Simulated scan of single mutants.
Amino acid sequence: MKPRLATVALPSLFGLFCLTLTLTACGGGTAGTPAPNGSGPIPPNGSAAASTPTPKGEVPAYDDSKLEPGEKKFMDTVWAVTDNRAKLKEADARTVKAVAAAYALECLGEEKDREKFVDEQDTGARMPAADRAKLLASWRSDLCGEADKEAFTKDVALTRQGRQDHDVWGKNAYAVTYKITNSGTGAADYFARIEFLDKDGDFLGSTGALAERLGPGKSSTGEVAPVPAEITNGTLGDIATAKVSEVDRTPKN
C-alpha cells in the first residue's frame, strides 16, 4: 500500500508535515524551492541536522487544544524528535489537528507502510535510530491504538524445545513446550507467535500457541510443532532453535 499522506489537500499542512519528521523536503525538494505554505524556502537536501533532543524538562509548546489524548501523546513525541519545533510551535490548533489526522490515515495500513514512509523521505535515513523507534512506537500505540505485540512476550516462556519422536508429529519432530502466564489484572485470550530459526539465526517459519480466557495470574501449558507448510524458508530439518516473537493479548470481560 502506498502512503496516502502526500494526497492530503492542505498545502500549509503538507509543508508542516514534511518538516515535523526532521525532513528537509518531501518528494526530493531542492534548495530555494518555495515551501508549500509559502513560509520560505525548503532547506537544501543534506543541510538539516538530525533531530535536536528536547532540553530536559522542556514542556512541548504548541497549540494542542483540539487534540484527543492519543493525538496529544503522539504529537508530543513528534515535538521531542523533530528539529523544526519552531515550525510546529507557530502552527494554529486546526493545523496541528490536521497534522495528527494526516498521520492517522496511515493507521489504515500496516506498520511496514509507516516505516517505509519515514525511510523514503529525503532525510528519513538520517533520523537517529532511537528517535525513529520512538516515533514509530508512539504512532502505533498512541495514535493508531495498536497493541505493542512485543510487550507481552514476557508472559510466554518456552520451557522445553528440541527434536523427539512424537506421537502426534512423528519421528524427529521439533517440538516446543510453552507456558503462558497472564500478567494482567483481568482475564484475557493469548496468541503467541513462535518462530523457528536455522543454525545461522535466519527465519524459517512460524506457528502459534493459544490460551483462551486465561484468568489473571493463571498459567496454561501446551506443546506445538511446525508442519511443513509453515516452514517457508527452508525445511523442518533446518530448524535449530525456536523463540517467541510476538504475543497478542485480548482482554475478556
Rank of each mutant, 00 (worst) to 15 (best):
T20I: 14
E195G: 08
R163V: 12
A86S: 15
T207F: 05
K116H: 09
D200P: 11
L108V: 13
A48P: 07
C18T: 01
Y174D: 05
K116V: 03
I42E: 04
D142Q: 12
S47K: 15
G208E: 13
D198H: 09
A98R: 03
N37V: 07
T33F: 10
R140C: 11
D198W: 00
T207E: 06
E230D: 14
Y103R: 02
G40Q: 10
K73P: 10
T20H: 04
L214A: 01
G184L: 07
A173T: 13
S65E: 09
G237P: 08
A48H: 11
W169M: 12
L197P: 01
D63Y: 00
N253E: 15
P43A: 12
R140A: 13
S141R: 10
F14C: 03
D200R: 15
A31Q: 12
T207Y: 08
T95V: 01
E230Y: 10
P53L: 01
A242K: 03
T159Q: 14
E71N: 11
G124I: 08
G109R: 04
L5H: 12
Y62V: 12
T123F: 08
P69G: 09
T181M: 00
I42K: 00
A192G: 12
N84F: 01
L197D: 02
S138C: 04
A86V: 14
D63G: 05
K171A: 13
Y174Q: 05
R132E: 04
G201T: 12
K72S: 08
A147E: 00
D165Y: 09
K199M: 14
K171F: 09
C144H: 07
Y174F: 05
G217C: 10
K252M: 05
D202S: 14
F17M: 05
D189T: 01
G201D: 05
T52K: 13
A125Y: 13
Q121A: 14
T30V: 05
T241L: 09
S65N: 10
K199R: 15
D76A: 11
G201P: 06
K56T: 15
V59W: 02
P60V: 08
Y174T: 04
Q121W: 07
A175K: 13
S65Y: 06
A9S: 09
G205K: 07
E106Q: 05
P60M: 08
E90V: 12
L16T: 00
A50M: 07
G208H: 12
L19Q: 05
L13S: 02
S51T: 03
T52Q: 13
N172H: 03
A187F: 06
A100L: 06
K218E: 02
D148G: 06
G46Q: 11
A225N: 03
S12F: 03
L88C: 05
T159G: 11
P11T: 10
E106K: 00
K73S: 15
G46C: 11
T82K: 01
A35C: 11
M1P: 10
D119F: 14
E90I: 10
G186E: 08
A240T: 15
D148H: 07
K252W: 11
K179N: 15
F203P: 01
A91I: 05
D148S: 09
G162R: 00
T7K: 15
